[in-house]
Design a binder for these strands. Structure first.
Length: 324
DNA sequence: AACGCGGGGGT
DNA sequence: ACCCCAGCGTT
């Protein structure tokens, strides 16, 4: 079983033949489609936003929450969100403070405000119904290329080209023979994803939609970034990365570790954690109360100002609070 | 194309 | 300690 960061070739095993220099031919897409879609039918996780009774709004909420946040942490927040606000109109009418409190520690709380703004736009422009085309979805706040395609596909069965980090990694390995796709989503990767889409005839795009979901799931469960489970992968025999001898990621492909300690993100997160307690706080008490010895007074002030500017915090007579 | 933006669990 | 996670908006 290969390790993406320490492939057999990189370990320099004496018994291991040197990795072949040139890439083998990539597999026929149709062969990969069949195996991955069949695997998905058998092994897909039973996630609530995949159930037939889940509304398009539920799918949209799940996709926004899942932007950079793992499934396990999203699940309880998604349940709570849909229980409180089962329709876009419900979320649009909620106080922003409540939106941010239910969002809790999912991270990137600006997503929560954008999701509420999307709900408002759905009420204003679409009569309260989640729009069913990629273009209309793309125009909503916080809905980018990925999320627009994902909602159109998973909620409305439209055969859009869905490309997320999992899918980019599976494509890179199976078809390009690379260990990792690299940090930025390139035009070449987009073209590859388009070429790999199953034909929408004769099944009206059912296979195309299944391919999107199945490839994403394969990347999440089997073809993972760190320790891929090639031993149980349905396309191991077709995989270009495997055929090439599991070449390790190049420097270009390695993900640059994003700093955390000492960043504004950490300070903003600490401030938000205090505000989520729900009690108004005097600015001085808020800034002085942070348990971040390394954070300067300047940084604390700057971060509070940025939260106010982002609409994630508000000044009131009683002190700083979540936006009312 | 590169950067800022949270937070926690797996290795 | 480090790395990764169903990205988006701005520059």
């Amino acid at each position: 079983m290969p390790d993406a960061t320490r492939s057999p070739a990189a370990r320099g095993d004496a018994a291991e033949p040197a990795a072949v220099a040139e890439l083998p031919d990539p597999p026929a897409p149709a062969d990969v489609h069949a195996r991955v879609v069949d695997w998905f039918a058998e092994h897909a996780r039973d996630l609530p936003w995949r159930r037939p009774e889940c509304t398009p709004w539920g799918v949209l909420v799940s996709e926004v929450m899942l932007q950079q946040t793992p499934v396990a942490r999203v699940l309880p927040r998604w349940e709570e969100w849909l229980r409180r606000w089962p329709t876009p109109a419900d979320a649009a009418a909620a106080p922003a403070a409540e939106i941010l409190t239910v969002w809790d520690r999912l991270g990137y709380p600006r997503r929560a405000l954008r999701l509420q703004a999307a709900a408002e736009a759905i009420v204003d422009r679409h009569g309260g119904e989640v729009p069913d085309t990629r273009e209309e979805l793309r125009a909503l706040p916080g809905i980018g290329e990925y999320t627009a395609a994902a909602v159109a596909c998973f909620a409305f069965s439209r055969p859009e080209v869905v490309v997320d980090t999992n899918i980019r990694r599976v494509h890179a390995r199976v078809f390009s023979g690379a260990a990792l796709p690299g940090q930025t989503y390139t035009a070449a990767q987009r073209r590859l994803a388009v070429e790999l889409m199953p034909a929408t005839e004769p099944d009206g795009g059912r296979t195309a939609c299944a391919w999107n979901a199945a490839t994403m799931e394969l990347g999440a469960l089997i073809c993972t970034a760190r320790s891929p489970q090639c031993a149980i992968c349905p396309v191991a025999e077709l995989c270009s990365w495997r055929a090439a001898g599991f070449p390790p990621p190049t420097e270009e492909q390695k993900t640059r570790g994003q700093a955390w300690a000492g960043t504004d993100r950490q300070v903003r997160g600490a401030l938000m954690a205090v505000l989520r307690r729900g009690e108004p706080v005097e600015p001085e008490a808020l800034l002085d109360g942070l348990d971040l010895p390394e954070a300067s007074a300047d940084q604390r002030r700057r971060c509070l100002d940025s939260l106010l500017a982002d609409g994630l915090a508000q000044r009131t007579a009683a002190g700083v609070t979540l936006p009312q």
